[in-house]
Design a protein around this nucleic acid. Structure first.
Length: 823
RNA sequence: GCCGGGAUGGCGGAACUUGGUAGACGCAAGGGACUUAAAAUCCCUCGUCCGUUCUCGGACAUGCCGGUUCAAUUCCGGCUCCCGGCACCA
């Protein structure tokens, strides 16, 4: 745009605001819910942020211009650590820091002209929002979906708080600015019983036809269903030690058993024996190690013999029991049967501790020798040394042994999931207080619903985390009265994981001002499910599982009619600069404020959309701006000389387009092709190619000579409407200037293509000989196969190739090509 | 290690759903017009190599090697490299 684009954009933004063009219709007839993942308010926005919002904005505008009632809301995921860290470093209250950032970010978004209905803005750190986190916590508690347990948990020594399993990435803290190595601590914490929904979360994925396949696969792996058998081993003294296995076919090959060092039994198994001391020392050592040291396939496995033996129920063999660090307490029963002959981990462990190796499956046509094996044999084969099961293929053996175990009461079929319960308590200040009271006499007592919200105290002098919650040090907060016995008691000092906030915010948007309920189910149901959800792929195994879990629970509570929150999901790639992802906290990026001053909002939107298809990464350079910036200037320049028509074409034109002048007819067809292409591409969020089509059509228009043609003037008008979702300010400006209406272009409908004029009368048919392009002929559409073959054979270039050769076959693909096969 | 995804000109990317003219659109680069000049704008060229010499013609080209097919960037088999997820899940 020329020099005054900023004034134009400001003016247009004021016009939208005054006219309330993007106000949500409270009674939608034909609803469309477009949602972008709400952001953490980090202050200055960069181009990477704008990608998310720009994609959502384009969807929203397209849908509005296609006649939908659109809900396109916005809000802030406003609780979280950076606010608190800012308080510690700069001595500014987290709330003030957060609100400052919100107002800065909001200004950028408004300057970008995103079509939000700001009346439904939601801010998660406000009591009128977080009280409903507490409400849901209590409701979940009533349903048995909240519990407290003591266990070894992930502890971030830098953030000084526990973390959920989903927030540990490769043994490190998920927050990119932290990245500290995670430690293990034994603590009592609050959990959501998400594992109760593991199967439904898995089954639900099948319904999500319009989710990206990689996201579904990631979730499937994260939930990690595996079918197997629980086998009732016993220690010699009769203590039951059940184990889970997916390979019951190897049961006769068990030569040791291994117990996780953090499993409860590990603490007691060797008590009072000569092994007690060694075992104790080993456990202490093992648990001191961080996740990173302990896990990883490269780390050498270690263990210690407990002095105890178990009995193998299928052959009564005496099996030594070890404690080993490669066994996980949190999966299966916390104890395994080990078959070194057929499991690589067990093999390595057996080699190290001189435990016998027993072969129970032989590969076809070959007998394994346990003394010379260099690794475990894990493939299919024939069972040996397995009593009555010898000679079976091991695949059959799995079933046969399982049935045998069930029959004898020695085991049962079972399913295990890798998904763990969601640890939601955090030892930090800036979050939703957990609405629970610890009473000496009554135990743990929920805060009565009528007493909500439990307000986060604002008068805090010291935010520095000390390994326990900041709130524990605020007497006015922590001391309270037990709701049951009315004696003095203490509040729970922890706050909730901020991913609780983002698990239901999309429902709050449907009824943002409700002070009686989190949302009115009727209002929610008229918008849900989300029709288009846009966000970064980094949430695949976090937020995108949590919000499905919440929706399913709320469905069970009868609050929503759908048990999946979102029909269509589009994840977009990150925006990088010099190969490094743009980031507010790392101060790396192109800042939106600067960019808008220099180039304007439309250029920003268009550049981000045109740079690459949404799912791909963008490595940002200033070069991406040049092309789209020129494109907009050319558009603007064109309309300085030409007057578009927004009148519908007379029906006579549509009926008689075949008798138009050749170049006018060509333009008419190009127009219809462009309309179709842009709308089709937009439907699939392929905005880069849609914009390319608009650029091509602009070329058609500028090279068209009869400026008085009705078709030409109509095309100018159609181009403005097609451009509107991508470059809304310029389009609105041209609309208001030429349409002589006072309404917005976004209250108009997109043009529709005339499908009777979508292709030219003649087409170019390439002629291949032996599959290689040799010539082209121009034929009328509807030309018969024979005619085309004749024309092809008569072609001079073709003749040259055919000279003295025999034609074996002529392949004709209608309207596509012709291929002549010769000997 | 397991599970995904990807590799196309100097660059970002089209075409891939259904095998059918590879390189749309844009950037960069080179040349030209306009201008006192520059910017801006407009026009032309632009995968590589060879031939012809101003109009074309040919060969080779979609990470590598094979296969299926009249025809493969697209399908199949085997590799290489890059990116992402998971991380001893029994």
């Amino acid at each position: 745009m020329s020099d005054n684009f900023q004034e134009i954009e400001k003016k247009i933004q004021r016009f939208w605001e005054e006219r309330k063009v993007f106000k949500t219709n409270p009674n939608p007839q034909k609803k469309y819910y477009v949602l972008v993942m709400f952001p953490y308010p980090s202050g200055d926005l960069h181009i990477g942020h704008s990608r998310n919002y720009t994609i959502g904005d384009t969807v929203a505008r397209f849908k509005k211009m296609s006649g939908y009632d659109v809900l396109h809301p916005f809000g802030w995921d406003a609780f979280g650590l950076p606010a608190e860290n800012a308080a510690i470093i700069h001595g500014i209250h987290p709330e003030q820091w957060t609100k400052n950032n919100i107002s800065i970010s909001k200004k950028h978004l408004m300057d970008l002209g995103i079509s939000y209905d700001w009346d439904s803005e939601v801010v998660s750190c406000e009591p009128d929002y977080y009280r409903w986190n507490q409400y849901f916590f209590l409701k979940f508690y009533e349903r048995g979906l909240v519990y407290r347990k003591q266990s070894w948990v992930n502890w971030c020594p830098n953030c000084q708080t526990v973390l959920a399993n989903e927030q540990v990435k490769e043994g490190h803290c998920w927050r990119s600015t932290c990245n500290a190595v995670i430690e293990k601590r034994k603590l009592s914490q609050w959990y959501f019983r998400i594992t109760d929904y593991a199967q439904r979360l898995l089954d639900g994925l099948k319904k999500l036809k319009n989710w990206p396949e990689p996201v579904k696969i990631m979730q499937e792996n994260w939930i990690g269903r595996s079918e197997g058998v629980e086998v009732n081993f016993k220690l010699e003294d009769g203590t039951p030690v059940p184990i889970f296995t997916t390979r019951p076919d190897t049961l006769f090959g068990v030569t040791f058993m291994a117990l996780a060092p953090d499993a409860p039994l590990a603490e007691t198994i060797a008590l009072g024996t000569e092994y007690e001391h060694k075992v104790k020392v080993y456990i202490a050592e093992a648990l001191k190690k961080s996740e990173v040291e302990r896990t990883g396939t490269l780390t050498e496995k270690t263990g210690v013999f407990t002095g105890k033996y178990a009995i193998n129920p299928v052959n009564n063999e005496r099996i030594p029991v070890y404690i080993a660090d490669f066994v996980l307490a949190s999966y299966g029963t916390g104890m395994i049967m080990a078959v070194p002959g057929h499991d690589q981990r067990d093999f390595e462990f057996a080699k190290k501790y001189n435990i016998p190796i027993k072969v129970v499956i032989n590969p076809p046509n070959f007998n394994l020798d346990p003394n010379t094996m260099e690794k475990a044999y894990v493939d299919e084969g024939i069972m040996v040394n397995s009593g009555q099961f010898d000679g079976l293929s091991n695949i059959d053996g799995i079933n046969k042994i399982t049935e045998y175990l069930i029959d004898k009461g020695l085991g049962k079929r079972t399913v295990n999931y890798r998904l763990k319960d969601w640890l939601i308590s955090r030892q930090r200040y800036w979050g939703t207080p957990i609405p629970m009271i610890h009473c000496e006499h009554c135990g743990i007592v929920p805060v009565p619903e009528k007493d909500l919200p439990v307000l986060l105290p604002k008068e805090v002098t010291d935010y520095l985390p000390k390994g326990k919650s900041v709130l524990a040090g605020i007497p006015e907060f922590i001391n309270t009265i037990c709701p049951q016995c009315h004696r003095s008691a203490q509040r729970d000092p922890d706050t909730m994981d901020t991913f609780v906030d983002s698990s239901w915010y999309f429902l709050r948007y449907t009824d943002p001002k409700n002070d009686k309920m989190p949302f009115d189910p009727q209002k929610a149901n008229q918008w849900m499910p989300i029709d288009e959800y846009i966000g970064g792929i980094e949430h695949a195994t976090g937020h995108l599982i949590y919000f499905r879990f919440f929706t399913k629970v709320l469905y069970d509570m009868g609050l929503v009619a759908y048990d999946e929150p979102c029909d269509v999901l589009h994840t977009h790639g990150m925006v990088k600069m010099n190969g490094i992802t743009m980031s507010s906290s790392k101060k790396h990026g192109v800042w939106l404020g600067d960019f808008l001053k220099k180039h304007g909002a439309d250029v920003c939107k268009l550049a981000v959309l045109f740079a690459a298809p949404p799912e791909k990464e963008i490595d940002w350079t200033e070069d991406l701006v040049t092309g789209v910036s020129r494109f907009l200037s050319r558009i603007k320049a064109l309309y300085e000389h030409e007057t578009p028509s927004f009148e519908p074409l007379p029906s006579s034109i549509k009926e008689q387009h075949k008798s138009m002048a050749a170049d006018e007819r060509r333009l008419y067809i190009r127009l219809n092709q462009t309309i179709k292409k842009v709308i089709d591409d937009a439907e699939h969020i392929q905005y880069n190619t849609a914009i390319a089509a608009l650029m091509e059509f602009l070329n058609d228009l500028t090279s068209f000579s009869d400026k008085n043609s009705i078709v030409y003037k109509y095309s100018l008008g159609a181009l403005i409407k097609l451009l509107a979702p991508f470059a809304p300010h310029l389009a609105e400006y041209l609309w208001l200037k030429f349409s002589q209406k006072t309404s917005s272009i976004f209250e108009e409908r997109l043009p529709e293509p005339d499908l009777t004029a979508i292709s030219f009368d003649t087409i170019t048919i390439p002629i291949q000989i032996q599959g290689k392009l040799r010539s082209k002929i121009e034929v009328n559409i509807g030309c018969s196969e024979n005619e085309i073959k004749q024309l092809a054979l008569a072609d001079n270039k073709v003749k040259k190739y055919l000279e003295g050769r025999e034609i074996t076959k002529i392949i004709y693909v209608p309207n596509k090509l012709i291929n002549i096969v010769i000997k």
